[in-house]
Computed example of a mutant assay.
Amino acid sequence: MDHRARPYRSVLYIPGSKDRALDKARSLPVDAIIFDLEDAVTAEEKANARETLKAALAQGGYGGRTRIVRINGLDTEWGRADAEAVAQMDAEAVLLPKVNAAADVDALAEITGDLPIWAMMETPLGMLNAAEIAAHPKLQGFVMGTNDLAKELNTRFRADREPLLASLGLCLIAAKAHGVIAIDGVYNAFKDADGLRVECQQGRDMGFDGKTLIHPAQVDVTNEEYAPSEAEIDLARRQIAAFEEIEAQGQGVAVVDGKIVENLHVATARETLAKAEAIASLQME
């Protein structure tokens, strides 16, 4: 399936070093998994984690879930070995932390070859260079690193995330301009389902494709909020039907619920139905 057509509602971080977590992820209803060799793995475990993860991916069982591996930065002692290892793993993409410019993507691509690259967007320089990063031919997705970004910007935590909206917006615009997947940052209070729902709605309203998660308890809310609702699916079907009817007659203007339906609405409606179908096929596995 083309990467743009796949759902990315829920993108769960899993430690690459823990067999139990790697096994549990095979049965979780997530759209994508970030197998983490960076923050979730201690310095002493870094080398072993590569082998553990390689074996788990070779074993398979992850179905239609997108398999992304986050490596350590190439400026760390583990980064190059991680990149070389991921190039030999059964992964669909490699995620690079703290991407500041397109040159960082170039440096990784020299090691990982044709493997699609995703970028952690979590630095002020990354925000300023989002467009050139998104334009890189190997770049397939952005993941917002909102915790690191908030630290770098010295912002205060606010439930409405107003201090981060400029950064989120810059990355979102760059992603949309270049056909790149855009995944929102994590919600830290993993037991607060109501707070998570509000943040999911905010991200979805902005245009993000999904959200990164730190705990399986967050999956259901995220999947629900990032999926097309029954009302949206119903409206999409009616818009398409009304438009096609007018087209067949060769005259008039299509109207649904008192609003004019134009080409652009029909294109969005078709995308909504395609996303709903992709989600349904993933759930049937």
Rank of each mutant, 00 (worst) to 15 (best):
V105R: 03
T123K: 06
L282N: 00
A159Q: 13
E51G: 07
F243K: 04
A274F: 00
E232D: 12
A32F: 02
G179E: 11
E285R: 08
S229V: 08
A83S: 06
G63Y: 01
G169C: 04
R20G: 15
E199Y: 01
N48W: 06
F243Q: 03
M121S: 04
I233S: 01
S10V: 02
V30R: 02
G179H: 09
A217D: 15
L95P: 07
L96R: 02
Q218H: 07
A81D: 13
R161L: 15
D90I: 05
V266Y: 14
Y62W: 03
K259R: 15
I240F: 09
R156E: 14
M121F: 00
E244W: 00
M284K: 14
L264H: 11
W78G: 05
L196S: 06
L282I: 00
F190M: 02
L164P: 12
V180I: 15
E271C: 01
I117P: 07
L165I: 12
Y62D: 00
K211P: 01
E84G: 07
M120I: 12
L170C: 12
S27K: 12
E247T: 11
P29D: 09
M1P: 08
E224W: 07
Q88F: 06
R9W: 04
A159C: 03
A119Q: 07
R80N: 07
P29L: 05
R65A: 13
I133T: 14
G79D: 02
F157T: 10
A93H: 01
D31N: 02
I173Q: 14
D23T: 14
E77Y: 03
D234A: 15
I71G: 08
L37E: 01
D148R: 02
P228C: 09
G252F: 11
D19V: 14
A254I: 10
D31I: 00
V186D: 06
N72I: 03
T112K: 04
T76W: 08
D220V: 03
R156L: 14
A25M: 07
M120F: 12
L165T: 11
G203S: 03
I133F: 13
N48I: 10
L12D: 07
A81L: 08
G61N: 04
L125N: 13
A280N: 00
L22G: 10
P116Q: 08
K191Y: 08
K24I: 10
L172A: 09
A131S: 15
P29C: 07
A58D: 14
E230Q: 15
I246S: 04
D194Q: 11
P124W: 01
K54W: 07
T42A: 13
K191D: 13
L57D: 08
Q249W: 00
M206P: 02
E247N: 12
